[in-house]
Computed example of a mutant assay.
Amino acid sequence: MRWAALLLVAVAIPAAGFWMFQAVQPAIEKASARFDGDAVQAVLRQGKPTVAEFGSDKCVGCREMKKILDGLSREHGASITVVSVDVLANRDYIRRYQIQAMPTQIFFDAEGREVSRHMGPMSREDILFKLGLNALPPETAARRS
C-alpha cells in the first residue's frame, strides 16, 4: 500500500508542475506558421518599441534570456513588444537578420527601425535601457545609488 501511495505522489507532483507551467506561459510572440512571411515585421507593425530575440530552446543562454523576456513582456506588455524567434526551426531568419550568435537581441524603435543589437545574454536593466524605458544606463544608475 505504501509503494502505491509513493508511486502516485511521484507521478502526480511532476504532472501537476507541468500543468501549472503550461498554464502560466507568457504572451511573448513566437515566430511560427500563424504569421504570413516575417514574424518580426508583423510584430513591428504594432508601433511599439520591440526586442526581437533570436535563439533556440537548445541554447542555455537563450533559455536564460527567455525568462527575463517573459517577465518584461508581462510587466511592460502595454508599452513594448517582445518577439522570440527559434532560429534552428526558422533558419531563414539567420540570413535575413544576420544572426551570428545565439542569443542575439535586436532592438527596434516604435517606427520599426533597428536601433541596437546585442549578442549573448543581457540583464533586464540593460534591455529596459535599450528600449528607452530606463533613463540611465544600469552602470550609471548603480553609481548614483
Rank of each mutant, 00 (worst) to 15 (best):
V83A: 01
I94H: 08
M102T: 07
E64K: 11
G61V: 05
I99K: 02
Q105Y: 05
D70H: 15
I80K: 03
T50K: 13
V60R: 13
V43T: 14
D109T: 13
H118I: 07
A52N: 05
S79I: 12
L44Y: 01
A39L: 04
G47T: 12
F54A: 08
A78F: 01
R117S: 11
A52K: 04
L44I: 08
F107E: 00
L44R: 08
I68K: 14
V43Y: 07
G120D: 07
E64T: 09
D109G: 11
Q105G: 05
V40Q: 03
E64F: 10
D38M: 11
D36L: 09
E75Q: 15
R34A: 13
F54I: 15
G77L: 14
A31G: 04
E64R: 06
A89Q: 09
M65F: 05
D36S: 14
L88T: 03
M65P: 00
G47P: 11
I99L: 10
R117K: 14
V85P: 05
S116Q: 09
I106G: 01
I99S: 02
S56N: 06
A89V: 05
V43Q: 09
A42R: 04
S56G: 08
N90V: 02
G77T: 15
R45L: 12
R91G: 15
S84M: 02
R117M: 07
A33N: 04
L88C: 03
D109L: 15
E75F: 12
E114R: 15
K48P: 02
C62G: 06
C59Q: 11
G71K: 14
S84T: 00
G112W: 07
A42P: 02
R34M: 06
H118L: 10
V51R: 00
M102C: 05
F35A: 04
S79M: 11
G47L: 15
R34K: 12
A89I: 01
C62I: 02
D70L: 10
D86R: 00
G71N: 09
G37T: 07
V43K: 08
A33W: 06
T104N: 07
G37M: 05
E111S: 14
E64N: 11
S116L: 09
V40C: 01
A52Y: 02
A110V: 14
E64P: 04
I68G: 14
I68R: 10
Q41N: 11
A39N: 03
F54M: 10
S84C: 00
S79N: 12
V40E: 00
V43D: 14
A89S: 10
G55D: 09
H76E: 15
R96F: 03
K58L: 11
I68A: 12
R95P: 06
D70Y: 13
A52T: 06
H76C: 13
V82H: 02
E53V: 00
A52Q: 03
A31S: 06
V43G: 13
E64Y: 13
Q46D: 15
R95S: 15
R96M: 03
R34F: 06
S56E: 06
V40N: 04
D70V: 11
G120N: 04
R45N: 12
K58G: 09
P103K: 11
G112D: 09
V40Y: 04
Q98D: 15
A110Q: 13
V87S: 01
F107P: 00
I80Y: 02
G37C: 04
A42G: 05
S79Q: 15
P49E: 07
F107Y: 08
S84P: 03
M119R: 01
F108I: 09
H76D: 14
G61H: 05
D86A: 03
M65G: 00
